[in-house]
Every structure is written in structure tokens, then in C-alpha cells.
Design a protein around this nucleic acid. Structure first.
Lengths: 290, 290
DNA sequence: GTTAACTGTGTCCACCGGACACTATTTCGC
DNA sequence: GCGAAATAGTGTCCGGTGGACACAGTTAAC
């Protein structure tokens, strides 16, 4: 059990010295991982099999085992490679998913709705902070971090399901964490709070993506909408059993767009989380002087 | 594609009329689902195969297909059955995971740490609200809802992985949603906002559980701790590349407990989310009078 | 030149979800 | 009562999965 993990860590972190005695390898770890990612992007994680990956590379499946101990390790490599490096958060403010390096905004490339950017720069709670001072820089940075992570998961939805449980992180994953923690470094939060805060933001994101994103990106909303009407019918027939829910959905349907909108739900929750963090940070800063 | 979903909906919602022409069925859907859940609880979702479920019931695997169209539908049934009914949120305040019906608090059965319960009942922001008036009752209720959902996922971790993407909800799932929305009904939020708020809370929970919970509950912390030291070593060797992260972890290790504690991270994030929601609700209530 | 290390292949295995034909059982219409 | 029809469970078969293992071909060190 632990042997697997140290093995995975070696693969993720150590390039490994090239042994020079036998024939030259006709494959590289990078090519294998890239082929696997391409399959997963196009057809979902379930379509990634040793046979399939090897076939796409014109090799037999057993040859892959010269490079990768097993499928679990291949998946771990896929995840870290798919995440890529984190964006540069210092270009803050209107930094958005589309400005991350090499990002071709797979979904929701739009800007922040309803002035969220301004809110991120100003004092969130009562306007007592000077908008020009540094102390609130964490907010747009963390938001940009979250949106970039969201975009990354949008590009590789299978990465969500491939990152269950506690795992050994790869270099890219730690780079992401470093970038996020750095955004929180001068907030006055303790180290533990910084970690918890970042986990909170990431968890919100992952949970939402896990619930809303279609995993093999097949027909990007057709069946989803059909399913929405199915759920609506299900609920309408039983409005007496679910009164509050039916009322809320009727209200939502009457007043505005469908509540299942991904970007909307993301921004809503993200703003809530950031507001909550701002409150904590404010508490820490004003501690001692009532 | 949609056929599967209507089929799933029928199985989840309609008991289906018992046809009376052939021999009496020796099995029931409930027994099959229960057997599958037992396997998943004990050995993880991957251990649930048609063969295995049928074998545990002393039947052949093909006989299961008389009751269930396929494995996907069985999984959907498992999820809804495993969730069970939501708790009664009216017994608020110190209502905790352990008081949910039939809950034998699998993990973190303890009470709210550091006075979170009191905070839930009082005005969250500045103490201007009267703690005895009803308007803030949503907060302890929503917290209780979240903790109960967390406990449910703790009892059946596999349910997290089995609920990817947009699905057709079962009766229990809609009961949970109804309970959550009911807690938010008199907050002044719009229907869409109530739905978004509940999705936010649930997403936070699911995301955190997805990242922290071990999925086959094998050795409930041994390897996890080993993995923690492995990550620590990984980070310590590269403290120059991850300065903020290393500093945060060092600080966390020096000041308090390990930052990976599940319950702690849950309460931290949950408090942040609830604070953010309280801020929104306050905004809605004080709207119009600056 | 011999030898040892290494690469890729072919064969084999247990297991997976599921299609299909088949027998045994029960009940409805007559 | 009796045949017909519908249902329940079984056995067999299929393509696919991850992976173990022995083997032949290639290359560099000695």
C-alpha cells in the first residue's frame, strides 16, 4: 500500500536516471501520459485502458508496463500533467481563467458577473478599508486562483474523479497549492487557517464541479436539459411532498435563469466563501481593539 | 441515454406493480440493494459486482437482471437507499450528526468545536440581532443539515463517487433537498438564491469529503498518516520551491494539530460558508435602508 | 566476444458487465 | 381442469479489463 505510493511519488517527482545497457526505449512516459490524457479528454476516463493507450501509440499494452507500474500510477501522472502549472496571480484584478498560460477557456470564459471584481478589491464588509492598500489583495487573487482551477477541471473533467481520497501530490499540484497559499500569506491568518482556507475554496469548487459537470463531454447540455425537465416533472407531480423545494424552483424559474447554471452557481458560492474568509480575516486584524 | 434515466426514475420512484403470472420472485429489489450497500460499505464500490452481489444472496448474477436493468441503475438505487431520510432539523441548536435517525456516528461524532453552536444562534456579524428572534434559525438548521449529510457520506463514502454529474434524484435525495431548502425558506432569499445556497453548502461538503475520506475504509488512518509524512518529507526537501506552503505547514505543525483533520476542516469551511450566507441574508434584509 | 541489462511481444489468467437461449414455475382465460 | 402465456432463475457465451510471466531481440559494459 505504501509501496505503491512511494512508487507513485518517484514517478511524479523523479525523472529517474536513464539506464544504459539495453535497447533504446521507443516510448516515453510523457508520450504515454499525453495519449492517455487525450483519450480521457475526448471520451472520458472510462475509455482509458492500457490496450487503448497502447493502441493509440502503436504498441502492445504490455509494453506500457515498462514505463508505468500499473494503471493507478498512470492515472496519477495523468492528473498532474493535466492540471498544468498554476496561473500567475500577481496580474490580479481582472485576471481571469482565459489569461492562464495556455488556457483556451473551455467553459465559462466570461468575466465576473455583477461587479464581483470591484467587490474583491474593496473592503468586503463595511467599507472601512482603504481600497488602495494591499491588505485585501488576497481576495482577487484567491478568486482568480479558484476560477483558474475551475477552468482546469473544465478542460479535464475526468481529473475530478481521478483525484479521490488522500493522494501523493505531484509537482504541479503542489505548485497550485503554493500559489494559493501565497495569496493568503499576508492576511494575518495562521498557517493552519491558510491551509484550511485554501482547502475550503478548492473543496467548494471540486464539489460543485463534481455535481454539475458532465463527465464524458458528450452533447454538452442536451441530455442535461432533458434531465432538468424530467426532474421538474418529477417535482411538479409531488409538489405537496416537497413544498419548499417546489416553491423555490418555481420562484427561480419565474424570476430568472435556470438555477443549474454552472458559472452562476460557482460565482455565488465562491462569493459566499470569500465573504466568509474576509470576515475571518477582518476578525483577526481587528482583534484586541473592540 | 434518456431511456436509461427514465428507467432509473421509474425504479427509484415507482415500486412498480407486481405482475402475477409467472413464478414468485425469490428476491426483492430491497434485498439486492441492501446486499450491494453492505459490500460497498465493507470493501468499497469497486468490490460491488453483479457476481459478488448475486453470490452473497446465493443467486446467479444473471438473476439480478430480472430486477435491475444494469449496474448503473443498481448504483443509483444504492445511493438513494444509503442516504436514507434527512434528519429533523427542527430539533435545532445542538442537533448533531449523532441524533439523526438511525445514525451511529461513523466519524466525528463530537459536538461543535469552540462554541460554533452559540454563534449559530446569535447574530453572526455584529451582534445587533436579538438572539431570541426567529430570523437566524436558518443557521443552526443548515449547519445541522450539513453535519448530517457529512455523517451520511462518512457512513457510505462510496456514495460520493457514485454521484458524479447531473443525475435523476431519488426520493431520499429530494427529501434532503426539501429539508435544506425549508431551512432557508424564511431568510428573504429568492428561490434561486436558496437553491444556490444549498448547493454551495452541499458542494463544500462533498468536495471536502471527496478529498479527505478514504474510500475503501481500510485502516482508518494508518496509511493516511504515513502519506502525510511522505508529503511532509516531499515538501521539506523542496522548501525553496514552495516557500509559502512550507511556512504555512510548519506554522500549522508548530501551533496546533495536523491541518488535515477532517472534522476541523469541515467546521472551518462550513463556518466560512455560513458566514458568507449570513452576510448575504443581512444584505437582503437591510436593503433599502442605508 | 561474452555477458548482463533492458525493451517489446505473445500468451495466459481471473474477472467484469451483459446478451441470449433455455427450463421451470405460476396464473389467467377458457 | 387445462392449455397458453408470462415470469423467474440458470448456463453458456462474448468482448473487454488489468496484469503475471516467459520469451526473443537489442544494446552497452567488461
Amino acid at each position: 500500500m505504501l509501496g505503491d505510493q512511494t512508487r507513485t511519488a518517484e514517478l511524479l517527482w523523479g525523472p529517474g536516471p536513464r539506464p544504459s545497457r539495453g535497447p533504446k526505449p521507443g516510448l516515453t512516459l510523457e508520450r504515454i501520459v499525453a495519449a492517455a490524457i487525450a483519450i480521457a479528454d475526448a471520451e472520458g476516463l472510462a475509455a482509458v485502458s492500457m490496450q487503448r493507450v497502447a493502441g493509440d501509440l502503436d504498441f502492445t499494452k504490455m509494453s506500457l508496463y515498462r514505463y508505468v507500474p500499473g494503471k493507478a500510477e498512470l492515472t496519477a501522472l495523468m492528473v498532474d500533467a493535466a492540471m498544468g502549472p498554476p496561473p500567475d496571480l500577481d496580474a490580479a484584478g481582472d485576471l481571469d481563467a482565459a489569461s492562464a498560460p495556455g488556457v483556451a477557456g473551455a467553459l465559462d470564459g466570461g468575466g465576473n458577473p455583477d461587479g464581483a471584481a470591484e467587490r474583491d478589491t474593496a473592503g468586503a464588509w463595511d467599507g472601512t478599508h482603504d481600497p488602495d492598500t494591499a491588505p485585501d489583495a488576497w481576495r482577487p487573487r484567491l478568486r482568480a486562483w479558484a476560477r483558474a482551477l475551475w477552468a482546469a477541471f473544465g478542460r479535464h473533467p475526468w481529473a475530478l474523479t481521478a483525484t479521490e481520497g488522500v493522494r501523493v501530490p505531484g509537482p504541479n499540484e503542489l505548485d497550485w497549492m503554493e500559489a494559493g497559499i501565497a495569496a493568503l500569506a499576508d492576511t494575518g491568518l495562521t498557517g493552519g487557517e491558510q491551509l484550511d482556507a485554501l482547502v475550503t475554496v478548492a473543496s467548494h469548487l471540486r464539489g460543485l464541479a463534481h455535481q454539475t459537470m458532465a463527465f464524458p463531454p458528450d452533447r454538452p447540455g442536451a441530455t442535461e436539459q432533458q434531465l432538468g425537465t424530467l426532474i421538474g416533472a418529477l417535482l411538479a407531480e409531488r409538489a405537496d411532498r416537497f413544498p419548499a423545494l417546489a416553491a423555490a424552483m418555481a420562484d427561480a424559474a419565474a424570476t430568472g435563469a435556470a438555477p443549474g447554471g454552472q458559472g452562476d452557481a460557482l460565482d455565488f458560492g465562491l462569493t459566499r466563501v470569500l465573504d466568509g474568509l474576509a470576515h475571518l480575516i477582518d476578525e483577526r486584524r481587528t482583534a484586541g481593539r473592540p
